[in-house]
Design a protein around this nucleic acid. Sequence first.
DNA 1: TGACATACTACGACAAACGTGGTATTTTGT
DNA 2: ACAAAATACCACGTTTGTCGTAGTATGTCA
Lengths: 109, 109
Amino acid sequence: MTNISSDVIRGYNDTMILYLLRQGPSYGYEISKKIKELSGGKYIIKETTLYSAFTRMESKELITSYSGESESGKKRTYYRITDQGETYYRERVDEWNLTKDVIEKFIAV
Amino acid sequence: MTNISSDVIRGYNDTMILYLLRQGPSYGYEISKKIKELSGGKYIIKETTLYSAFTRMESKELITSYSGESESGKKRTYYRITDQGETYYRERVDEWNLTKDVIEKFIAV
DNA sequence: TGACATACTACGACAAACGTGGTATTTTGT
DNA sequence: ACAAAATACCACGTTTGTCGTAGTATGTCA
């Protein structure tokens, strides 16, 4: 089976994470599980990719972080989307629609 | 207007070039014009990106090159797709269909 | 004559994603 | 009771595609 290479989905990791954070604050491990589930197991984000995306997006103020705890008391870092992140997400959605149309012109029938 | 960023189309430059080479041998300048035309001006590949893609694909044996001349006698390097390039192109098409489905799950309605 | 199109190349920089390896706690299976 | 797996995260250095800048050289047209 053909797999999804990182070069192809590159540029959409941030969008996928923001999509999930729009549903409420979350943390690394949960996000990675959700990406796997929602993609039907077709895409599994690498941990390093995920955490470096968090750092990058926080420095761009697309998300903010705060410390929390799981039910059992384990520490977690939660992330929440900002207004700027919302705006950025919508721009990526618009861009996706453009990009999709362009790429499809180069996909043979 | 939202523009297409390179990070988003990244990973599809090779596919676009191969799509055009499937229609017959071509060269840098022509390929870049055709990408611009086919995309309706929405995507303009940078020269350096294009020529480095040629080098990369030739080393991977997805394409081969030969010297030719324009009507006016100017030298040109033509590129032709190989059988391996054909196979690679079809794999990218399959991958695109998968990727498209995955990304759309993260695009809010 | 000088701008513009054609046709390409060299060189270094950058940023996203990756590979590897590590820490530490909690839950589950036998 | 003990091991294995799952949870939760981080540091560090590398790779790769794309890009910015700059340069060479010829042809065309006003």
